[in-house]
């Protein structure tokens, strides 16, 4: 991937736009769309670290999202703890699971990792939906009304919006920080050619594991944010295949392995999804899957670099034209 200098003005404008969005568009509907957009962008950016940058395609990231969503609500149900206490526990559990999956399969070619992620995610979903300790098919609920700010249960959407925005900022800052550091070069080298990277002394397995761990941590946090915001999780919304699919499609549509690709993907897909759900009502979810499947196939066939790469290519073309004209 060629790394083009991102203009600072653009970054400032983006940040300012996201900061004032809920103040300009004040309706509950706009806030809801904004919060959904931020959550989707966080999860897709987290997936992007291992799937986009390191090129290890996970199609079962819902396992980390689900752990992140279930753990805080489980501790609340069992002991009445604040959901905040469950978030670090979920992170530790997600790291453990990442090690369990990554260590055997990341030694091998990329296919095995993909297959392991889909099998493990499905296995966990099946187990969770029969295990009454975690609510079986019904799922778990959080605090109905907050006992204090620490329960993270707010009536207004605004606090969620700014918490989610801060987390998104953190994920992007971490990603931007490693892009230009050794780790960033390692992951891109592995993606470009694993054998070549290895022969040049890149610690391949270790780097892939680090990428997976970092990705799992942020995905788990995304799940926790989802759970405290919704106050409810069931096997489908936590571990369902749609959860994994959304992360993949948003990152791939925008541009896997680019910093702002997942943001762009979420910016297109979330409003689109809200619109189709409004048109089609609750029965539209099946159609959503069909459309998602179609989009994924089209991206893979025609533009695997996503919209970001398309944009860079068009821009380069325009520059060449300007050069020729001059």
């Amino acid at each position: 991937m060629t790394k083009l200098p991102t203009s600072r003005v653009g970054v400032v404008l983006l940040a300012a736009g996201l900061l004032v969005y809920p103040l300009v568009f004040t309706g509950a509907f706009y806030h809801d769309v904004g919060v959904s957009f931020l959550l989707a962008a966080i999860a897709a950016s987290a997936w992007n670290i291992v799937g986009g940058y390191a090129g290890q395609i996970s199609v079962g990231h819902s396992m980390f999202f689900g752990i992140g969503a279930y753990t805080p609500l489980l501790f609340y149900t069992l002991f009445g703890w604040s959901p905040i206490a469950g978030i670090p526990v979920a992170i530790v559990l997600s790291l453990g699971l990442a090690a369990l999956i990554g260590l055997p399969t990341l030694r091998l070619s990329g296919h095995y990792f993909s297959m392991a992620t889909i099998a493990v995610a499905e296995l966990i979903r099946l187990l969770v939906s029969t295990w009454s300790f975690v609510g079986a098919a019904i799922g778990l609920q959080g605090p109905a009304s907050g006992r204090g700010w620490w329960d993270l249960t707010f009536r207004s959407e605004l606090p969620y919006y700014y918490i989610f925005l801060a987390v998104l900022g953190l994920v992007l800052a971490v990603t931007a920080a490693f892009e230009s550091r050794r780790f960033g070069y390692y992951v891109r080298a592995i993606k470009a050619g694993e054998r070549a990277a290895k022969s040049l002394g890149v610690p391949v397995l270790q780097t892939k594991m680090q990428a997976l761990a970092l990705s799992a941590v942020f995905t788990s946090v995304a799940g926790s944010l989802y759970a405290v915001k919704t106050g409810f999780v069931d096997p489908g919304s936590g571990f369902g295949i749609l959860v994994s699919v959304q992360m993949v499609i948003i990152a791939a549509l925008g541009g896997a392995g680019t910093l702002y690709g997942p943001l762009l993907g979420a910016l297109i897909l979330i409003p689109l999804q809200t619109a189709t759900n409004n048109w089609l009502g609750g029965g539209g979810s099946g159609l959503t899957f069909i459309i998602y499947g179609g989009i994924i196939v089209l991206i893979a066939r025609f533009e695997p670099g996503g919209l970001m790469e398309l944009w860079y290519r068009l821009r380069a073309k325009r520059w060449r034209k300007l050069d020729a004209a001059a």
Binding site: G51, G52, G55, I57, V59, G110, H111, S114, K191, V245, V248, A252, A256, G286, L287, F289, I290, Y292, G293, G294, I295, I296, V297, I299, A300, R301, P304
Partner: peptide, 27 residues
Amino acid sequence: HVLRGPMLAQILSTFGLALLLRYAAFW
């Protein structure tokens, strides 16, 4: 076409196809 593309394209092509066929059948 995806055989010549990156790993992402190879895995996503049939993964997306699976979703498309499965939920088209549901529909």
